[in-house]
Design a protein around this nucleic acid. Structure first.
Lengths: 266, 266
DNA sequence: CGAATAGTGTCTCTCAGACAGTATTTC
DNA sequence: GAAATACTGTCTGAGAGACACTATTCG
C-alpha cells in the first residue's frame, strides 16, 4: 500500500523523471508588417506584406559552432518556468524590436520528434503584427544585417533553420485566414484610415475580385458593421494624405463579426 | 575560443540543463459526441452535444494518493519522446474508446505556471468527434462509472481537475466556431443524411434564426456548395428514417468553403 | 381522414455586380 | 483644363425573409 498518506506529501516527492521529459520549451514569433512604398505625392502607396527573420550566428557567444548557424530563422527563445509561451513571445518581441502592446497570437505547436537536432524541444509558434513606423524606428537604431524583412516570395529562396519553413508557411496561411475572418486588418492600420488604405492592406493578403474593383469596394465598405466614419464636432473628418481629393476617414468599432458558412457568400 | 570544432561534435555534448526544462509534456482530448434520443417512431430525435470525461482515481496503481483524485478530467496522458502531442492524442483516444480514424484537432496549448501542482507540465489540448454509435459500443463493453458523458450544462456543476475547466470552456467555444466556419458537422453525421439531421446537428451548437425556421432552412440548404443530393442509378436516393414522408438524402462534397467578414452576412 | 414531416409558391425588398458618370483637388 | 483619386447613379438579377400552401405517408 501507499508510502504517502496525503496528496501534499506525495507532491513533495513527485519525480519528474517518472516519464521522459522534453529537453526544452521554446517560443517562436513570426513578425509581420506591411511596408508602404510611396511612389509619388498624392498617390496611394504600394503595400507589401513582409516577415522579419534573423540570421543565426555561425558561432555562439563562447565561440562554439551554433546549431543551424548561418541559416535564417524566426526570432524566439527558451520559455522560462515562470512564464507561458505567450508571455515569452511578448518578452522576446520587445527585446527584439523594442515594441510592446502589439497584437500577438498563438497559432500552433511544433513537436515533431527530430525537429531540433539538439534535443526533444517543443516550440510554440505565434504571429505578431508590428506597424511599419515602429519597425522603421528600430531599423535606424540598429541596422544589423542579421535582421531583415522579407516578402513571401523572397522567403521561398532562403535556407531556413529547423522546421521554420513549415512554421512560416503555416503562419502565412493563418494570417490570411485571420485577415478574412477577423478584424485583424486594424492592426496594420493607423487608428484613423481612409478606405483605400484598408483596401491596400486587404489586397496584400486576400485576392477577392470585389475588393479590387473600386466601385464595388467603395460602395460596400462604408456599411461594414465594424468600421465607422470619424466625426469631429459633428463634422465628418477627412484627409488628403493619399490623394488630391479629400477622402473620408474611418475607424474600427468594437463590433466583433461572426460569420458562418451556412449563411455567407463564397 | 571554441572547444568543439564541428556542429556534430557540439550536438553530442549538448546539455539540456543549459536552460530549465519542463517536467512533463501531456496531451488532453475533449471528446465530443452528439447523442440522439428517439422519442417516437417517425419523429426526428432530440440531439444533444455531450463531452466525455473521466473521474480520476483517488489512489493510483501503487496505492498512493493520486493528484486531483476524485475530480473529473479530460482523458489524456503523457506524450512519448518519439511522438507528437497529436499522435499521443490519437493513441490515447484509441486506448480509451477503441475507435480510430476520427476527426482530431489541436486547438490550444496550456502552459500557465502552476496549472499542474506536480511540476512544470505543458499540455496540448485537442478536440475529437466520435459518432454516437461508436461510443455506444464502448459503453456496452465497459460500463465503468468513471467514464461518463455530460452535457455542457452538467459540466458547469462538476469539480474539474487542473485547469480543465478552462480547457473545456475553450474547447466548446472552438467547436462552435469550427461548426460555423468549416464542414465539421459532417463528422457528427452518417455519410448520407437528410436535411433535418443536418439541421439538428447545427442547432445543438449554433443559434441562427434561419436554421430554426424550416421554410428557410429547407429552401437554402439544398444549394449549399458543400453538400449534394445522393443519386443511385440516376435516381434520387431518399429515406424515411425520421418521417412518414420520404426525405432526400444528402452527402458532403469535398468543397472547402472559405468565407470572409468582408463579403458575408452577419 | 388527421397529423406530422418535408418541402414549394409567391411576394417584397435588399443588395451584389457591372459600368458609366460626377466631384474635388493639384499642377 | 488635364489628370488622378474618390466616390455616386442607375439598371438588372439573384437571393433573403416572411408566410401561406402543397405533397406524402402512417395509423
Amino acid at each position: 500500500m501507499g508510502e504517502y498518506k496525503t496528496e501534499e506529501e506525495m507532491l513533495e516527492n513527485y519525480d519528474t523523471n517518472k516519464y521522459e521529459t522534453p529537453g526544452g520549451y521554446t517560443s517562436d514569433i513570426a513578425v509581420f508588417t506591411i511596408i508602404s512604398t510611396e511612389l509619388e505625392k498624392h498617390k496611394p502607396p504600394v503595400k507589401e506584406l513582409k516577415l522579419m527573420l534573423i540570421q543565426r550566428a555561425v558561432k555562439d557567444a563562447e565561440g562554439e559552432p551554433n546549431v543551424e548557424g548561418g541559416k535564417w530563422a524566426l526570432p524566439g527563445g527558451f520559455v522560462q518556468p515562470d512564464e507561458t509561451a505567450f508571455e515569452a513571445a511578448s518578452r522576446e518581441l520587445e527585446e527584439e524590436t523594442g515594441v510592446t502592446e502589439l497584437k500577438i497570437k498563438h497559432f500552433g505547436t511544433y513537436d515533431k520528434p527530430g525537429r531540433d537536432k539538439r534535443a526533444w524541444i517543443i516550440s510554440n509558434a505565434h504571429y505578431a503584427i508590428v506597424p511599419e513606423d515602429q519597425l522603421i524606428k528600430r531599423k535606424a537604431a540598429d541596422d544589423a544585417s542579421d535582421v531583415q524583412l522579407f516578402t513571401v516570395e523572397e522567403i521561398d529562396k532562403l535556407d531556413l533553420a529547423f522546421d521554420h519553413e513549415q512554421i512560416i508557411s503555416d503562419a502565412i496561411w493563418i494570417i490570411k485566414k485571420d485577415m478574412a475572418l477577423t478584424t485583424l486588418a486594424k492592426n496594420f492600420l493607423p487608428n484613423e484610415f481612409v478606405l483605400s488604405e484598408l483596401q491596400g492592406v486587404l489586397l496584400t493578403v486576400l485576392d477577392d475580385a470585389w475588393i479590387k474593383l473600386d466601385a464595388q469596394f467603395f460602395r460596400k465598405a462604408p456599411s461594414l458593421p465594424f468600421i465607422e466614419k470619424v466625426m469631429v464636432k459633428g463634422e465628418l473628418k477627412k484627409s488628403n494624405r493619399w490623394s488630391k481629393n479629400k477622402a473620408q476617414l474611418y475607424q474600427f468599432t468594437d463590433f466583433d463579426p461572426f460569420v458562418s458558412i451556412y449563411n455567407a457568400n463564397y
